[in-house]
Simulated assay, not measured.
Amino acid sequence: MDRRELANFLRSRRERITPAEVGLPAGPRRRTPGLRREEVAQLAFISTEYYTRLEQARAPHPSYEVLAQLARALRMSDAERDHLHHLAGAPPLPSAGPSREVRQSILDLLHRLPQAAATVTSATFEVLAWNDLAAALMEDFSALPRRDRNLVRRAFLGPHTHGQRLYGVSDADAFARTSTQRLRAAAARYPDDAEVAELVAELLDGSEEFTRLWESHDVSAEPTLCKTFQHPVVGPVTVNCDVLDITDRDQQVVIYTADPGSPSEEALRLLSVIGTQRMDTTH
């Protein structure tokens, strides 16, 4: 553990972040650039005394949990987080399972696409992040427990809202095949991850269709370039489907856009106004 370099690194990361970037008021009489030590401690859920000792090169070896909390509080990049671990004498552990942490730049991107519905999904099809239009088009994911945000689980096991499979998408059967193939590949990449194994076991136990597709051992999947959602309020919405791979996180950004001037573009524009409020009463 290089206490002096660790202290200097933490101080430099703290001083570059403005209070506004982490949702804190600037307030009067702020004499220090960036955040105060007590603000970093609050964001990282550690004591101000301990954080102060870290910056004074007097603290004992920080745990992996503390390092993770500091990296998140100081909005560190992947490279900065790894450097933090090495300075602390605790090299970053290899990931046993799919990453669920979405980079801040990707989160910012989602909200800069007001005319597109966009989500971030993990290697196992868990919806990790979304923008407002995606919630309006598909579902208010913030209202769901984490396990119910998994699209492959929803495709095979439901619930099927309004009697429609997976939000009434036109390619539901193709998605079932594709998701099975990609899930098999993910299971091979993460053989020691308990959540992946539990998901596969649950699907094998609960869906004959998944079992049949799983036992085919296919691992290649054709991309879907266009699909139609059957929305309960605005009706059919046909969108182009573009997927951007985030290779270092094994995640995908899925972006849905409608053709300019089409009825579906008008439907998306209406959904952006309606949001996730429930205008239909037949539930």
Rank of each mutant, 00 (worst) to 15 (best):
A143M: 08
A135G: 10
D78F: 13
R154N: 06
L70C: 11
E139Y: 07
Q104L: 11
L84W: 00
V66T: 01
Q104I: 12
E80A: 01
E101S: 10
H162L: 10
A117P: 03
A116C: 08
A136K: 05
H85M: 01
L110I: 02
P159I: 12
S122L: 04
R177A: 11
T178N: 11
N150K: 06
L137K: 02
A116P: 02
A143P: 01
T161E: 15
Q164D: 08
T119P: 15
H85Y: 02
A68P: 11
L109C: 03
R165E: 02
A134T: 09
F125S: 07
S179D: 12
R103S: 11
L109M: 11
Q181M: 15
V120R: 15
M76K: 00
T124V: 11
Q115K: 11
L84F: 00
Q164S: 08
R103A: 09
L107Y: 14
N150H: 05
M76T: 05
A136H: 01
G168E: 05
L74Q: 09
A90K: 15
Q164R: 14
F175N: 14
F175S: 13
Q115D: 15
L93Q: 11
H162R: 10
A136T: 07
I106C: 09
T161P: 13
V102W: 04
A123Y: 08
R153C: 00
H162Y: 12
V127Q: 01
F175I: 15
Q115F: 05
H111Y: 03
V120A: 13
L166V: 02
R149Y: 09
A71E: 05
A116N: 00
A71V: 01
D78L: 15
Q69G: 11
D108A: 03
V66G: 00
A123V: 02
V66P: 01
G89Q: 06
A71C: 08
L107M: 14
L110E: 00
D171I: 05
N150T: 06
V127R: 12
T178L: 04
M138D: 12
L107R: 15
E126T: 09
T180F: 06
G168F: 14
L110A: 06
S99D: 04
R112T: 12
R149G: 05
L67P: 00
P98E: 03
V120Q: 12
E80D: 12
A176D: 06
L151N: 01
L166G: 07
A134F: 09
P92A: 08
G163D: 05
